[in-house]
């Protein structure tokens, strides 16, 4: 099978890689680019553990073919803290509030929640609790019971608004 050459922006950097046309974006990110933050929890778009932002939109990387990333702007969890985040090399406020708010246990769902929450706060800096639940409805967590995730997103929203 001939491999396709794909050029895109990943976490703010121009990137190119080779992938088979039938390879998922998730496998390409993990296997070709070494970005293993996004996880395969189901492979069917049900759990959201593979969430990345594609031109700012939350996308299940397991449901997208790698060549569909051509020319697009991707953000993975690894990009939250490394310049794409507002605090440069430091953790993004969402990462910090998840960490301080005990909003993670096993951590496999965490990258997907962070990325989906970032997309929400980028568009809606002051979401209601219902809006947070809607925005994170595509992400499953089996450990935390979700409440601490909601509180951490609320706290990050407060911090981001006050930083502006």
């Amino acid at each position: 099978m001939s491999r396709t050459h794909i050029t895109c922006t990943v976490n703010g950097e121009d990137t190119d890689f080779l992938a088979n046309p039938g390879t998922s974006l998730l496998d390409a990110l993990r296997d070709e680019l070494g970005l293993t933050g996004a996880k395969e929890g189901c492979g069917t778009g049900d759990c959201g553990a593979c969430s990345v932002l594609m031109d700012g939109k939350v996308t299940c990387a397991c449901l997208v073919f790698a060549p569909e990333a051509q020319g697009r702007n991707l953000l993975t969890v690894e990009g939250l803290s490394s310049g794409a985040g507002i605090s440069g090399d430091h953790l993004h406020p969402l990462q910090q509030t998840f960490l301080e708010g005990a909003a993670l246990q096993c951590g496999v769902c965490t990258p997907g929640f962070l990325v989906a929450a970032k997309a929400l706060l980028d568009h809606n800096p002051d979401p209601t609790e219902s809006e947070i639940r809607y925005a994170l409805a595509g992400n499953l967590c089996r450990c935390t019971g979700y409440d601490k995730i909601i509180r951490s997103v609320q706290e990050a929203a407060v911090q981001l608004r006050s930083a502006k």
Binding site: G37, E78, S81, Q95, F98, L99, G107, V108, T110, P111
Partner: peptide, 24 residues
């Protein structure tokens, strides 16, 4: 007390390695 988990930062920035991540 409730000090922060030592593995939490690596779980928020995607760097922690699960068995499915470490493929030599």
């Amino acid at each position: 007390q409730s000090p922060l988990r030592h593995d939490a930062a690596a779980k928020t920035d995607g760097s922690i390695e699960y068995a499915g991540d470490t493929v030599p």
